[in-house]
Write a protein that binds this DNA or RNA. Structure first.
Lengths: 159, 159
DNA sequence: TATTGTTATACTCTATAACTATA
DNA sequence: TATAGTTATAGAGTATAACAATA
């Protein structure tokens, strides 16, 4: 109340109202995105743990990566990723490819079995989502179409 | 390709194209939402683990709950929640209130310290989000305004 | 000497099984 | 006997510290 009166007084009402709406938008978006992501996680692939699946999906999306690359991307420490990769290798979902020139480096590449696993997992989550989207009004679907692109780019390259 | 030709032949092209777009929308939305949620989790409150914070936020949002209620809501088993609550009690963020009539039941209530912690955590995540939203064009913000409400309701009461 | 990754060890989160207290 | 919750114990995920191999 005080804010709006002040803003009105100083002739910056539009700006101030935007700031207020922005906080509320951030709040609602945080809530909706967090809950939806949680539901999607719950549609998990059986037989593979979330951390392994996340690493696998990352490698599948980026192409062959080193352990170091994966650590940066997944925000974990080297020993953790070393173990995740060992598990994925044991499961036959990825394979190690020694670097031709620098033999310290281990490239990690998705196998065709791993490829199938990632795609099955994605299909499962997307089917869950598609089912809910199908229940919406056409205008709502259109809003989501436009929002999807904005969300994809929203946190791109941010810490 | 085959699908569209077939749809065209049977005169259901519009429906079939929608189905195709729906899968793509689901895919993009899954990607965007998952990544954004991940970034939000990374803006975590220091000194409290994600599982404790999630439980705390749930109690704060719902009011006093039993351990059983919390298990259902957080999708964990009773021993897990029992420990999470014990940790929160030790940290002074929640308190146990014995049920007046059924002494097996333990109600869990947020303390004022817990309240402050939840709100600080939310503010931190929302500030992160608001900062990114502020960099968008006004039309994009408007799309997100409309999308927020749709996302909030999208998975309401679904398994 | 610096970099890449692994092994050793410890702590947290989670689960199942067995238990206690109460209804 | 059934229910609400806790304790005992074990497995997975993660981290830091110390190490090995290579550059």
């Amino acid at each position: 109340m005080t804010l709006i009166s002040y803003a009105n007084y100083t002739g910056r009402m539009q700006e101030t109202r935007s700031a207020v709406d922005l906080a509320e938008l951030a709040s609602r978006l945080r809530f909706g995105v967090t809950r939806l992501a949680r539901k999607l996680r719950q549609q998990a692939e059986p037989g593979i743990t979330p951390s392994c699946l996340a690493a696998l999906a990352t490698i599948e999306a980026h192409g062959p990566m080193t352990i170091g690359d994966l650590c940066v991307h997944e925000q974990v420490q080297p020993p953790t990723m070393s173990r995740v990769v060992a598990t994925l290798v044991d499961a036959g979902l990825v394979e190690r490819v020694p670097d031709a020139v620098d033999r310290r480096i281990a490239w990690v590449r998705v196998t065709s079995e791993g490829e199938r696993t990632v795609q099955r997992s994605r299909r499962r989550k997307e089917a869950y989502l598609a089912k809910r989207i199908r229940a919406l009004e056409p205008e709502q679907v259109e809003v989501l179409e436009r929002a999807a692109g904005i969300l994809e780019r929203l946190v791109e390259g941010s810490p």
